[in-house]
Amino acid sequence: MKKSLFISTLAAAGMAAGFASAGTLQDVQAAGVLKCGTGTGQVGFSAPDANGYWEGIDVAVCRAIAAAVLNDKDAVEFVPLTSKVRFSSLTSGEVDLLSRTTTWTFSRDVDLALTFVGINYYDGQGFMVPTDLGVSSALELDGATICIQTGTTTELNLADYFRSNGMSFEPVPIDTTAEAQASYIAGACDVYTTDSSALASARSSFENPDDHVILPEIISKEPLGPLVRHGDDQWADVVRWVMNALIAAEELGITSANLETLAAGTNNPEINRFMGTEGNLGEMLGLDADWAARAISAGGNYGEIFESTIGESTPIGLARGLNAQWTQGGLMYSPPFR
């Protein structure tokens, strides 16, 4: 008797847990705040500014989602996570989504039970060295001491690259971006390797950016994007389509400037569906009709976000390259809104 009571209690607890984790969207709406896992401080991607206000292209995704779901782009609680703890924080429910330069890989998607919902930056791993080292190619790095961040794909790519080229290296594994940069500057390693966008970001924050050079080799594909827990398809859809909305808005010419005029109604049915003046896309997603417009109002479309956070006018100065719209020769391509 006692045992069966015990088991039924367990079953009830398990079911309760199951219900509780059923709808992240409902949880977020009930809490009125989106818990967003970000980086620990990578200028241009996710870092607080001088006033402690989080900025960056990864942060913008969180703000757009908060605007779409909660109608308040500041209703976000940013949780800075190191690359080591990010996945456990997501799967344990400590954050609702992870938007922190995370590479989409097979094993992470499949084995770690995560759902990658899109790509907000196409990146690749590169190397940065001091100019006075006189190195012009990564193939000259045999025997070098290299600073890497632990728990990243870069750690594995690096081992693969050096092995396939018959070279050796001395790894200096470090937990956070800031420490890795500090070690590199202090000369504890000859080379700093990570995603080339992050290298550009680091270089721009150095005292003398010209003393450092980013080598031409890109040794890996690093598609970076936001991700959510496995098994909550509705929430994954919300995050995926807010991402797509940012990209589609650029393609459709919807910007934060003309947003209000277009919201009044246009002759373009796709823009009308996007804005919620036609059809019921918002309802299908479980959001208000103007969800996409709100997402754009948070920080503009993808192009605007890119330009204001890591684009050529910023100190980081990254070109659009692969991250241009597909119509401009890039890879940014949103499925149609219909």
């Binding site: 080591k84 996945f87 094993s107 084995d111 770690l112 632990t150 728990g151 594994p173």
Partner: peptide, 9 residues
């Protein structure tokens, strides 16, 4: 407790 945990989940 670090890299292996992280890479294998």
């Amino acid at each position: 407790g670090g890299t292996i945990l992280n890479q294998t989940g």
